[in-house]
Design a protein around this nucleic acid. Sequence first.
DNA 1: TCAAAAACGCAACAATGTTGCAAAATTACT
DNA 2: AGTAATTTTGCAACATTGTTGCGTTTTTGA
Lengths: 131, 131
Amino acid sequence: MATVKKTAAKTAIFEFVNQSAQAVSHADIQQGLGDVCDRVTIYRVLERLVNENLIHKIVNVDGVLKYASCEICATEHTHVHVHRHDHIHFSCQKCKSVTCLEDVHPTYQLPKKYKVMEVNFTVSGLCPKCV
Amino acid sequence: MATVKKTAAKTAIFEFVNQSAQAVSHADIQQGLGDVCDRVTIYRVLERLVNENLIHKIVNVDGVLKYASCEICATEHTHVHVHRHDHIHFSCQKCKSVTCLEDVHPTYQLPKKYKVMEVNFTVSGLCPKCV
DNA sequence: TCAAAAACGCAACAATGTTGCAAAATTACT
DNA sequence: AGTAATTTTGCAACATTGTTGCGTTTTTGA
């Protein structure tokens, strides 16, 4: 029985991600939190937070992984149910910010026989501040 | 006046990408082509091919960049016009293949003021062969 | 309090991608 | 064809991002 343990690093990282208006990278966290923990620990904590559905993971257009708070998780206090993170992310080419557009859910129809488990929709260009 | 030059490496890489049914990574190309050219050259040729709209670039769910032939480019013989590569890509978690679903174009509506320049839609799960 | 399990730090490694610069190849022009 | 201009290449070195193994520390539940 895998028991999840509460640790200082996990709490700090979770709050950091949650308080950010934009999606943050590993580097952002490391820089933002100073040295609360080792570099490797950040990777491992992020992996756990994603598995526990407390945050969600985004692949940016340049291939760098980013993490963002999950509105559903943040508001509903039960993390038991699994929900799909199928909203669009916007990656600004100028200010480099990655923002969740939680209300924008693309519609599409896949050919039969494909079994979808995760989605990653990212659109890049200029955000309202930079346009 | 930047003049595009035809080279052996470029031709080989372009044909390799074009003949692949799935999207290929830098590593796939390097392995597939042996040593027609240096590792760095592959990166640079891919960048050029993308800029010339001869192939298109995909960010896989794990953050690795992949490249695929562009059906529009491959069939229409004029590469002059810029076209959006806004179809969905499917990334199989089992066989690791990344396939262009050229006919699946998601519809979505962004909030005003976002200027879209590129899109990257990737769906992962199990492909028909692995389901 | 104490033992089991989870999480951590450290070090080392792996994969992927980038940059600078001099040499080689291609192209345009005469 | 000859030649100069420009692009492309190879090489080496480096940067970034992410992973793994392992012994130690921390957390948790009984």
